[in-house]
Write a protein that binds this DNA or RNA. Structure first.
Lengths: 340, 340
DNA sequence: CTGAAAGCGCTTACAG
DNA sequence: CTGAAAGCGCTTACAG
């Protein structure tokens, strides 16, 4: 048991001060004179004293740790860079505030509640893929909480998300401006999947605003895999009349559609335009580089964490709800229709 | 302060038992009769009691948390899926053992030492990119530690890594068997970068074993970016005599070399073979799909975590050192030389 | 500016 | 099988 050998008590005795003073020195409190500090610090270094954080946490009821509740692995997860981008941003931001990040895989609401009541964390970030009914139970606890990557409807909960709907609207409108009228939509997962449904809304709204008909046959739904993207792309590209443009829900599936087109001998963008949305850097490196809407997940992670620290430190009066804009990036996979 | 409202003491009073008994019930100890358990559990539910983990940790000196020390962001990190794969595996594995994962960004050895002495964690996983001198200081603490993704030379430290050198040897030998004699190597980062140097060793050994000359001009070094891959690919493919095959240190840079070849009007694999190594699933979706060596980072994460739990529970006598095999995956970017 | 006392909420011996 | 006491190592009032 080397790790807990030296306690504040030992240091106090060696330095001829009280335990209390040692504690203040460790926290660099202005209540201690520089001379005493220097003397105590020398002893601390000499004895190799390291504070036991757990005792500190128990007594002060501040853990200097934020929790991050992640969904368990899903079909989607294999493919998804989303979570990684966010997690990285969260960790960097927490570190800057001198906080640790504690990871918890969501299994049910109870495990999340246990964590919130355990004293292990001061606040909780919740991944947007956690189901709403669990979210409600979690939000009922008395601990700052920020939802990451989606909104919470009418619930009085803080959240930070990207404007998925606006992004989808933007890229679909871009296609329409380029003269496309038959624009298919390749979705993924369940119809209620938050991000997919938001993107689909944007797609539908763009068509409606332009007065274009939304045909049922133009909307198909895969399972997040490259293979499903290929199959659906193939299906749509061999249907008649063939769409002049395809909007694909993820960049991986869009890359698959690119291959389906290639397999069929169709040129992109000359014969068909393909656009997508997401945050994968690979999408610019496929051939041709994909026109996409960039979703700023890193920024979402950072803003959410900043908001969490605000809640910890200031006791925010009402829920804060933040939407970050997306960016249309026109690359080589889309062009004006008919203009070969 | 809702979170700490109900304590074990309150439950004990309400149930008419001692605080001790409540503690045993929460831990589901066989020392308590089923009747008492049921009665106490009912009260626990009724009162909404949640154990304060921090007090438990302080008293029992077991945090039920493992630490994961990550390197700070580097140029390499932007591109790297490595860490994400590993982290996911670690988290899933920890969850299965009923442990949390605490993230810590490496700034210096001292911060790692503080964490190890803080009582917050029972054991520590260290990312392979942490420098050796810091690793030594960390390993000197009395806490189980496993190094992830690289070996530790002669140091008596447990580690789990993939056979990067063997993988590089394998894919280079594959090229040689296909008749290639001028095989260039595109590296990245600093010469001492562990993974890069291991891969380079495998490359050199394969050439040596085959009795092929290693020419200085065939070895170039980029900076992990797509752009540097493109530039170096372009340079090598316009050099004379042109290499018949290129082995590229990362899959992203290999995708860039593919584009350089396309830009030059060279066909892959007819005019030049391009092979790589890594764990990015994207490499199979570029055109042509890349021949690669699959590095099992997920398995590395899982094995490392399992090893860590062994160290926690059994007090392993000597360091365990595990090398996981890589797998050559021949796809469409390489072929027999001259056989057009 | 420093010290002595109390206590955060558990678990761990130990006694019955 | 259950209970009463001690204590993990800090921080927080409070007193001087």
């Amino acid at each position: 048991m080397r790790k807990s050998r030296v306690t504040g008590h030992d240091v106090a005795k060696a330095a001829g001060v009280s335990h209390n003073t040692v504690s203040l020195v460790v926290r660099d409190s202005p209540l201690v004179t520089p001379e005493t500090k220097a003397r105590v610090r020398a002893i601390i270094d000499e004895m190799g004293y390291q504070r036991n954080d757990v005792a500190m946490v128990l007594r002060s009821a501040r853990s200097r740790t934020i929790g991050y509740l992640l969904p368990e692995d899903s079909a989607e997860a294999e493919v998804d860079v989303f979570r990684n981008q966010v997690l990285k941003a969260v960790t960097v931001c927490a570190e800057a505030h001198n906080y640790y990040v504690l990871l918890d895989l969501f299994s049910d609401a109870q495990s999340g509640i246990s964590l919130m009541s355990s004293g292990r964390i001061d606040a909780l970030l919740v991944d947007g893929r956690i189901p709403n009914e669990s979210l409600l139970k979690l939000a009922a606890r008395n601990l700052p909480l920020v939802l990451v990557g989606r909104d919470a409807g009418d619930l009085p909960i803080s959240w930070v998300k990207a404007d998925e709907e606006g992004g989808a609207f933007q890229v679909t409108s871009h296609l329409i401006e380029q003269g496309h009228q038959r624009i298919a939509w390749i979705a993924a997962g369940e119809a209620e999947h938050y991000i997919v449904s938001q993107r689909e809304r944007g797609y539908r709204r763009a068509l409606e605003v332009a007065g274009l008909q939304i045909e049922a046959a133009s909307i198909v739904r895969g399972d997040w895999t490259f293979e499903s993207g290929f199959a659906l792309g193939y299906q749509l590209l061999t249907s008649s009349p063939r769409p002049t443009a395809l909007f694909v829900v993820t960049e991986l599936m869009a890359a698959a559609v690119l291959q389906a087109a290639r397999t069929l001998g169709l040129r992109v963008p000359e014969d068909v335009s393909i656009v997508t949305i997401g945050d994968s850097f690979w999408s610019q490196y496929v051939q041709p580089a994909l026109t996409t809407v960039q979703v700023p997940m890193k920024a979402v992670g950072t803003r959410a964490t900043e908001l969490l620290f605000q809640s910890i430190n200031e006791d925010l009066p009402s829920p804060q709800q933040i939407v970050l804009p997306t960016t249309l990036i026109v690359r080589d996979s889309s062009k004006r229709v008919g203009n070969k």
